[in-house]
Computed example of a mutant assay.
Amino acid sequence: MSSLPNLEQKEKAIKTMTKEKRNFRQNLVAYAFISPWLFGFIAIIVGPMIYSLYLSFTSYDLLSAPRWIGFDNYIRMFTNDPRFWTTLKVTLIFVAIAVPLRLVFALAVAMLMNTGHRGSGFYSLIYYVPSIIGGSVAVAVIWRQIFGREGALNHVLSWFGVEGYNWFAHPDYALSVLILLIVWQFGSPMVIFLAGLKQIPQELYEAAAVDGSNKIQSFFNITLPMLTPVIFFNLIFAIINGFLTFTQAFLITAGGPIDRTLLYALYLYQNAFEYFRMGYASALAWVLLVIIGAFTAIIFLTSKKWVYYESEGGKS
């Protein structure tokens, strides 16, 4: 009888070993499948990030070996580079205006597309096209043809006896031209808003109508609260993309006139590939990472007060 417990223990040990071997093989297969992505993530993202952090503490001109200078790049940035503060101010103004306008416009168009009218899918596709081509050379040429001295906008203004400007070369209006272009590229958040609108139960609107709510009241009491997770998602990505905006400023205004459209990403590019200050550009990149991280953290922390999740029965 005493041998029976030992036999049971041996069988249990064998089953455990078999299970561990099976789990190991399954994990090995899983790692084999994700290894291309894992290799690319380490080689293309993690590796360059670590190297750029090292370069941010060096003086490096792409031609000679990096020379360690400690925190000099960061000290110079905050104490001896007025253009850094200029570009930071321009970028903050750009993000503060462009992001809300883009999201409001995207939501308005998404609500129009959500009416269920025939051909709404086709129009959604048409409205999404600017988001695809918005950073191309063709759009830069079009924008110059519209807002240039002899552009279409000035031609229309001349019908009313108004003399126009070279809008993207005017210090007071150049940034507005870029903001208008970003707002015009509302396709991506619009598609996400449209998907969110389709998930709102129609029973809520029917119940509100029975209670006597009009469309405006239903929008603020039903649509907006139910869309807050989607607004939260779009807001995060819009702010990140706003701080990273480069192509539009590079192709249309090149940072001018007098640095009025010198966005942060463009200034970073200029330091890296025009002035060959790769170490200083790396320091700028890490400061930008901290700024974006700070804004993202603030939105995440404040989301507990305004983001509503239906599954939780209230706000996050």
Rank of each mutant, 00 (worst) to 15 (best):
residue 133 I to C: 07
residue 206 E to Y: 05
residue 152 A to M: 14
residue 78 F to Q: 06
residue 241 N to R: 06
residue 256 G to K: 04
residue 302 T to R: 03
residue 76 R to C: 09
residue 181 L to K: 05
residue 256 G to F: 03
residue 181 L to M: 14
residue 25 R to P: 01
residue 70 G to L: 03
residue 142 I to W: 09
residue 120 S to K: 12
residue 63 L to P: 02
residue 144 R to Q: 12
residue 63 L to Y: 14
residue 108 A to H: 01
residue 25 R to M: 14
residue 220 F to H: 07
residue 242 G to C: 04
residue 165 Y to H: 13
residue 270 Q to H: 11
residue 59 S to H: 11
residue 63 L to W: 07
residue 75 I to V: 15
residue 231 I to K: 06
residue 172 D to R: 11
residue 246 F to R: 03
residue 309 Y to T: 11
residue 55 L to I: 04
residue 238 A to H: 00
residue 289 L to Y: 02
residue 123 Y to T: 04
residue 21 K to G: 09
residue 26 Q to D: 04
residue 156 V to P: 03
residue 255 G to S: 01
residue 270 Q to E: 15
residue 269 Y to H: 12
residue 219 F to P: 01
residue 98 A to Y: 01
residue 259 D to S: 09
residue 156 V to N: 13
residue 248 Q to C: 13
residue 67 R to C: 03
residue 23 N to P: 04
residue 100 P to W: 00
residue 26 Q to V: 10
residue 265 A to L: 11
residue 77 M to K: 12
residue 195 A to P: 01
residue 15 K to Q: 13
residue 43 A to S: 15
residue 266 L to R: 11
residue 67 R to W: 01
residue 46 V to T: 01
residue 195 A to Q: 08
residue 188 S to G: 10
residue 102 R to S: 03
residue 174 A to Q: 06
residue 230 V to Y: 15
residue 53 L to Y: 07
residue 172 D to L: 13
residue 176 S to C: 09
residue 198 K to N: 12
residue 35 S to D: 10
residue 284 L to G: 07
residue 40 G to R: 03
residue 253 T to K: 04
residue 112 L to S: 07
residue 117 H to C: 02
residue 280 Y to I: 02
residue 75 I to F: 15
residue 304 K to Q: 13
residue 161 G to K: 12
residue 75 I to N: 14
residue 264 Y to Q: 02
residue 22 R to T: 12
residue 237 F to K: 00
residue 13 A to P: 07
residue 19 K to H: 15
residue 241 N to Q: 12
residue 72 D to H: 08
residue 9 Q to S: 15
residue 312 E to A: 15
